[in-house]
Computed example of a mutant assay.
Amino acid sequence: MLKTIISLLTLGLCVTSATVQAKETVTVAGSTSVSHIMDVLADTYSLTHKNTTIAIQGTGSTAGITAVKQGAAEIGMSSRIIEPTELEGDYKTVTIAHDGIALVVNKDNPVSNLTHQQVMDIYQGKITNWKSINGIDLDMAVVSRENASGSRFSFEHFMGLTKKVSEFTVSDISPRVLVVSTNGMVKSLVSRNKHAIGYVSLGSVDDSVKAVSYDNVFPTIAKVESGEYKIARPFLLMFKESKLDKDAQQFIKFVLSNQAQTIIRDKGYVSIDEKA
């Protein structure tokens, strides 16, 4: 009898172990802006795909691209255009949404609109006090994202805040700009500092900060969709097609589905069908 019980327990442990081992993990790494919505999509997907874990890692767009190329992630997330040279070797991309980049200031800051030239001058250190643009007499605390950020790449290229050095395109913002690693850190600094200005994913804007108009157009999803609000970029997924396993393929298919695109719209982004 004892031998029978031990045998059954052993069999049960083997079955449990096999069940645990059968659960697959799909690693998705990259843009912290994209990860904001991908976390929600991954949670939704997991409700009906119990044997698949979608691991979202917000590491920055460039880091996500590198992770895919090094085999550390099945799928990369990018909030900037991926260069053709980065796609050499069977790498593909799909657009899953579109997003604006909002300029944000402290809620007590009276400034409500910035022109293209004013934004350039602020980030190049030519305008250093809010009084110069009809604000209060306070020195500016200018916040930007780290070099690997897709938001920074898109922001600088749109604004013309780049320059050529030895045939390479590099940042042309002031070295005095405070650099942080996430949208959340930008919002935290701006919300606590009346001097501060920064930029974040439009989908990340909340009541902790104040979004301002750019060239007299206030950032909204409708105005990104119509093209009126110009500071916009795509959200992309990148992968190596020949190495994408079934679980990763199914997750990408879900992200492009009507169900996922509805979630994307509800969370404040432009879905791919709206932009088309």
Rank of each mutant, 00 (worst) to 15 (best):
T93L: 01
D172T: 03
Q21F: 13
T16S: 13
E228F: 03
V177N: 13
K240M: 03
T32R: 08
M38R: 01
A211R: 08
S46R: 13
V15N: 07
I264R: 00
K210T: 10
I82H: 05
L114P: 09
L9W: 10
A276Y: 14
I101L: 12
P175L: 07
T162D: 12
K223V: 04
F153S: 14
T62W: 02
N216M: 11
A63F: 06
K210Y: 06
A141V: 12
A211I: 06
G125P: 09
A67W: 00
G227H: 02
Y45K: 07
P110T: 07
M77S: 04
L2P: 09
L103Y: 14
L256F: 05
D39K: 10
T85A: 13
I37T: 14
I54E: 01
Y269A: 08
V255K: 05
G60L: 03
A97V: 00
E241I: 01
V224T: 12
V217M: 03
H49V: 03
M77G: 09
M140N: 07
K50W: 12
S132T: 10
S213A: 15
D215S: 13
G268H: 11
G30L: 05
K3E: 13
K243V: 00
V209M: 04
D139T: 10
V270M: 01
T53H: 12
D245V: 01
T52G: 06
I96D: 00
N147M: 12
Y199N: 07
G198R: 07
A276Q: 14
T182K: 02
S132E: 15
L237W: 07
K246M: 09
I5E: 10
V94M: 00
E74N: 05
K240C: 05
G184D: 13
K246C: 02
L41D: 05
E88Y: 13
